[in-house]
Simulated assay, not measured.
Amino acid sequence: MRTRVTEALGIRYPILQGGMQWVGKAPLVAAVSNAGGLGILTALTQPTPEALAQEIARTRTLTNQPFGVNLTLLPSINPPPYSDYLQAILDSGVRIVETAGNSPKDFIARMKDAGVTIVHKCTSVRHALSAEKNGVDLISIDGFECAGHPGEDDVPGLVLIPLAVRALKIPVIASGGIADGRGLAAALALGAEGVNLGTRFLATQEAPVHEHIKQALLQASERDTRLMFRTMRNTTRVLKNAISDEVVATEQRPGGCRFEDIRHLVAGARGRDALASGDTQGGVIAAGQVVGLIDDLPSCAELMERMVAECRAQLAQASRWAA
């Protein structure tokens, strides 16, 4: 399959693995890249820039195909050393970086000077236009269905994708709500030139999470996600479990909720430990509404070959109907 996205990234299929915290590690990343897509390491999963450099080196022992690194820039009282993480990426020779969260404009010149192709993930057309103006190469547009942070506009992909395609000159990658070849076909029909999958890759053989977590995804329906932090205008979509239920209940109580009231529930280390131990009720587990479409645990190669075959079949069927 050939689009501007595959050409820019040097991949066979226009399928990217989302930069998932605690999940975007070498085995999964290499499996996606070896299967023809773009695997993406998650920089802040690693405790230090030096550890990130080691994980990049480990990935290179598992694949000789292109892969990228996600650097998510979030507002924080005590932010991680983003500049040092970026330097580790550049010094390691990585030439594809996915940015997300805040605008990457302060780092764009450094990345461009190093020959990096920049994919910026955002949740609105206005932010996409700003990123295009600042010089990013590709936009990954996240619809309301997605796992993690869908923004505050609540616009689903069926509307957001064509809006972004119409507004932007650079290629658009559709993200959120895509799990199979039908979703890939739909994204292409809407004008996107690639797709980004997070939750679907979480439910694969190579995903570095406990089997109990994967089984929870298989058992979940499209109704089994919760939106946390709505009252704080930092909306986050996660799997419905005891933790997310308690967070939402706390937000809805009379008198409101401060972040300090729920900090102990949503601590990142707690979510990391839940993914590793398989305690499905023990921490926050990011998941999109696409869980309703997931009913098996294939390898990344099996998933991607199936997606491409389904996509071609769906587009051919649609062409016959149109004819």
Results as ranks from 00 to 15, higher is better:
residue 1 M to A: 07
residue 5 V to I: 14
residue 5 V to P: 03
residue 6 T to I: 08
residue 7 E to V: 01
residue 11 I to P: 01
residue 14 P to N: 09
residue 14 P to D: 08
residue 17 Q to S: 10
residue 19 G to A: 09
residue 20 M to Q: 08
residue 23 V to S: 06
residue 25 K to W: 05
residue 26 A to F: 02
residue 29 V to M: 09
residue 30 A to D: 07
residue 31 A to E: 04
residue 32 V to H: 11
residue 42 T to E: 02
residue 48 T to L: 05
residue 48 T to S: 14
residue 48 T to P: 01
residue 53 A to T: 07
residue 57 A to Q: 14
residue 58 R to H: 08
residue 61 T to S: 15
residue 65 Q to C: 12
residue 69 V to D: 04
residue 70 N to H: 10
residue 71 L to C: 02
residue 78 N to G: 00
residue 79 P to S: 13
residue 81 P to K: 10
residue 84 D to G: 00
residue 84 D to S: 15
residue 85 Y to E: 01
residue 89 I to T: 07
residue 89 I to R: 01
residue 92 S to Q: 07
residue 93 G to A: 08
residue 95 R to Y: 02
residue 100 A to V: 01
residue 107 F to M: 12
residue 108 I to Q: 07
residue 110 R to M: 09
residue 112 K to S: 05
residue 114 A to N: 06
residue 119 V to A: 03
residue 119 V to C: 04
residue 121 K to V: 04
residue 125 V to D: 06
residue 126 R to C: 04
residue 127 H to S: 11
residue 134 N to D: 15
residue 141 I to D: 11
residue 143 G to A: 13
residue 149 H to A: 11
residue 150 P to Y: 10
residue 155 V to P: 09
residue 159 V to T: 15
residue 159 V to A: 14
residue 162 P to I: 06
residue 163 L to A: 15
residue 164 A to F: 13
residue 169 K to V: 06
residue 173 I to Q: 09
residue 173 I to F: 10
residue 177 G to T: 04
residue 190 L to P: 08
residue 190 L to G: 06
residue 191 G to N: 12
residue 191 G to H: 13
residue 192 A to L: 12
residue 198 G to S: 13
residue 199 T to D: 10
residue 199 T to G: 05
residue 211 E to V: 10
residue 211 E to N: 09
residue 211 E to D: 15
residue 212 H to M: 09
residue 213 I to P: 01
residue 213 I to C: 09
residue 217 L to V: 14
residue 220 A to R: 04
residue 221 S to K: 10
residue 226 R to H: 14
residue 227 L to Q: 13
residue 229 F to V: 00
residue 234 N to S: 15
residue 243 I to L: 06
residue 244 S to K: 02
residue 247 V to E: 05
residue 249 A to Y: 03
residue 250 T to V: 01
residue 251 E to C: 04
residue 251 E to D: 06
residue 252 Q to P: 00
residue 255 G to N: 12
residue 262 I to L: 04
residue 262 I to F: 06
residue 263 R to P: 00
residue 265 L to A: 05
residue 270 R to V: 08
residue 273 D to N: 08
residue 275 L to E: 01
residue 284 V to F: 00
residue 285 I to W: 00
residue 285 I to T: 01
residue 287 A to G: 14
residue 288 G to A: 10
residue 289 Q to V: 03
residue 289 Q to T: 07
residue 291 V to A: 08
residue 291 V to E: 09
residue 292 G to C: 08
residue 293 L to F: 13
residue 293 L to I: 00
residue 299 S to Y: 06
residue 303 L to Y: 06
residue 303 L to D: 07
residue 304 M to I: 14
residue 309 A to G: 03
residue 313 A to S: 13
residue 321 W to Q: 13
